[in-house]
Each structure stands twice: as structure tokens, then as C-alpha cells.
Design a protein around this nucleic acid. Structure first.
Lengths: 114, 114
DNA sequence: TCAACATATAATCATTTGCTTATATAATAC
DNA sequence: GTATTATATAAGCAAATGATTATATGTTGA
């Protein structure tokens, strides 16, 4: 998990992706919980297209993958990505973000996607 | 070295900085050798101001530090930075870039800064 | 089939980014 | 001091980025 070498240009593109507060937080959240778009929309208090566009970039880079579950699309970390070890190592340095989902739960807003 | 927690916003700003091929390569190079601006200018085949501006961003974020040596300014990784552990962990995933300095040496262009 | 919901895509726009050229600052060597 | 060298800063500009609004697509359930 620790020692995987990623080409410089590829690594730079991954770091650039993660170099956005919204995307970085999303990925950290996905490290412990799969999430759907509607949850992110609630949590980041931004528009649904904005979230969709962030997710698309992460998906295009292979960082996340999607699974359709009925009308919802559930996103999760793509553990078989070439850059997953790099991403993991970065996430280790970030504070846990589970409280965000817990807050959603308190407001009863998380039930929708189950 | 491994487990240091960095605030999400701070981490995102560091990742954004490293999310540029030129800066990422520079930092990887500095991991094994201190360098001066003129070396980077040769290596990246770009203008001196462009290099200066990249270095300034890295310096402002505390990623690198400078030491003046006569008319040269030698840059090195700032190992006492709060985000040094994060940076180190990222660099581990990158291919060694020493060949770049070796090529410079072959051309005799590295002597200038010694 | 159609209304409602979840998500994606397109078009647009203001902001940020990274480069260039021109110029300033600082140290060295004569 | 003055020329030379190394580096920094400023101004300007084209390209990339991230948001918004409007619209399209796809799924569910009556």
C-alpha cells in the first residue's frame, strides 16, 4: 500500500484534483463511507451541478467509482486505481470528517438514499 | 513522520501547490538535493521569472526555505514545516528525478552555483 | 404514460493561474 | 563606482477553473 510509484505528470494531476477543499473533503468522507450526490449537496451547501462536476473530475481520474442503486448513484473510492495508494497516504493526514454525515443524520436528511 | 494531521483547508492548499508538474518536480528534486534558481531555469527550459514565481508560492506556503550563498539563493525543503510529513509521504510515490541534475552536470551547467 | 425525483450535461461568467516581457534589487568582480 | 550575474517583482494576457442557471437523461411509482 505504501510504496507505489506514480509518474510525475499523473501524480500532479491527482494532487491538483485533491487540491480543492470540496473535493478533498469528499474523498476523505468516501474513505469511511460511500455517499450519494444528494448527501454531498446537503453537506457542502452548494448546487447539485457543482457537486456533479466535482465528482465527474474525480471519476474521470479514476479516484472514485459509481454504482447505481435505483435512482441513486452511490460513489465510493476506487481501490483498484493505480493511484489509490497515493490517495490513501494523503488521506491519513486529514482529520476525520464523519461528523458531517452524523450531522446530516441528525437532521434526518440521510435517510433519503437508503 | 507518518501520522501528522493537517487541517483540511491547509492540506488542500498544499496539494494544489504540488498539483503542478513543474512545482512537484522541483520539490521532488529538493528532496535529494538543494538547488538554486538557475538550475531550475535550465532544467525546466522556462523563463527565470516563471521559476521565481513557482518558488515564491512554495516559500509562502512554507514548503521550501531559502539560504543566500553569495549571489546565489539556495533552496531546500523546509523540514520543520507543519506539512513536511504530508509532503514527504507524497514524494515517496514519485520517481526519483536525480537524472535531471546529472544531465545538467554533463553539460557543465551545474558548476555555476558552487 | 406521466409526474416526481436524482443526477448529468451544457452554456455562461467571474476568478484564478501561469506564462511572458520589462524592470528592480542585490551581490560580486573589476 | 560600474558592469555583470542572480534573483525578485510588476504588469499584462490567454487559458483553466469553479460556480451558476437552464435543460437533458434516467429511474421509480401511481
Amino acid at each position: 500500500m505504501q510504496e507505489s510509484i506514480v509518474e510525475i505528470a499523473k501524480a500532479a494531476s491527482i494532487l491538483k484534483l485533491l487540491g480543492d477543499k470540496t473535493r478533498l473533503t469528499m474523498v476523505k468522507m468516501l474513505d469511511t463511507n460511500d455517499c450519494c450526490v444528494c448527501e454531498f449537496v446537503e453537506i457542502f451547501k452548494t448546487s447539485q451541478p457543482a457537486i456533479s462536476q466535482h465528482i465527474r473530475k474525480l471519476k474521470d481520474a479514476g479516484v472514485v467509482k459509481e454504482t447505481r442503486r435505483g435512482q441513486w448513484i452511490i460513489y465510493s473510492l476506487n481501490k483498484s486505481s493505480e493511484c489509490y495508494p497515493l490517495v490513501q497516504n494523503i488521506l491519513k493526514h486529514l482529520p476525520n470528517q464523519d461528523f458531517k454525515l452524523q450531522e446530516l443524520e441528525k437532521q434526518g436528511l440521510r435517510i433519503s438514499c437508503e
